[in-house]
């Protein structure tokens, strides 16, 4: 009898503590993390300095300004305007991200005055030669993976994500550590088909800007080739009232003042 009482107490307490801590389902965590990472504010801009280092220690840099505007149903537009190095200066890259279907992508080549539409292609391709992939920049659809909460510490959720269609990606799964307070993914580690860790993306510096926790420095490392890329963000602003028309051919031809 006494034993039963104790076990009942444990069960009740257990339920209570669960209720009080408001443990979220893994789907809710992933959704909140996606929103924190890619949907802060209705729109935003940032200057990015990218440094790509290879295993021999030589480095290449890219500097660009990125504009983002949210549409309906998770769709977003991105405008990337390159400032350095000199050979890519004044190039502009426009993305119309559509959730659940192929994105529209255009590249503006100023010397040719050419608006080149880019075939949808593999989103897990390097972004401008760096260790970041297109999908890291614009976000990976949260429905593309099955998520499992592996652990929950005082500060982080650890989530394992397994692709539903493993043929379209190079990883077999990845683990993400999501900050419990900000819901910013602190670290993601990717495992290949032989269960070997080969890639890591980390948010090494997070600041709160206009109330939104924001990654100010991110590092992507390719553990196989030994290359790594650091992105340093500056001049981050949200809710600046970007017009939808900025994300059209007109402003590929003549960059908007927001990127100057």
């Amino acid at each position: 009898m006494k034993k039963t009482m104790i076990s009942m107490m444990v069960v009740v307490l257990g339920i209570c503590s669960g209720v009080f801590a408001q443990e979220l389902s893994v789907e809710e965590i992933v959704k909140k993390a996606n929103e924190a990472s890619y949907y802060a504010g209705k729109d935003g801009k940032a200057d990015v300095k990218m440094t790509i280092s290879d295993s021999k220690g030589s480095a290449r840099t890219r500097e660009f300004t990125i504009l983002r505007r949210d549409g309906d149903g998770g769709d977003q537009n991105f405008y990337v305007y390159f400032k350095a190095p000199a050979d890519v200066r004044k190039m502009a890259f426009l993305v119309w991200k559509h959730v659940g279907k192929a994105d529209g992508r255009w590249l503006w080549l100023p010397a040719l005055n050419l608006n080149k539409r880019i075939a949808p292609g593999d989103k897990r391709t390097s972004f401008v030669g760096s260790d970041f992939l297109y999908e890291d920049v614009s976000g990976r659809g949260i429905d593309l993976d099955k998520h499992e909460l592996l652990a929950s510490s005082d500060t982080h959720y650890k989530i394992k994500s397994v692709p539903k269609d493993s043929d379209t990606v190079e990883f077999s799964y990845y683990n993400v550590w999501v900050d419990k307070k900000t819901f910013i993914p602190q670290k993601a580690e990717y495992y290949d088909k032989n269960d070997k860790l080969y890639r890591r993306v980390e948010a090494v510096k997070v600041e709160v800007i206009q109330g939104y926790p924001t990654v100010m420095e991110a590092v992507a490392s390719d553990l196989k080739s030994g290359t790594s890329t650091v992105n340093v963000f500056s001049n981050v602003k949200y809710d600046i009232g970007l017009s939808e028309r900025i994300f059209t051919e007109r402003f590929l031809r003549r960059p908007p003042k927001e990127v100057r």
């Binding site: 192929a102 539409r117 880019i118 075939a119 949808p120």
Partner: peptide, 9 residues
């Protein structure tokens, strides 16, 4: 006219 078709353009 230009647009997406299958996995290409």
């Amino acid at each position: 006219i230009r647009g997406g078709l299958g996995k290409g353009l």
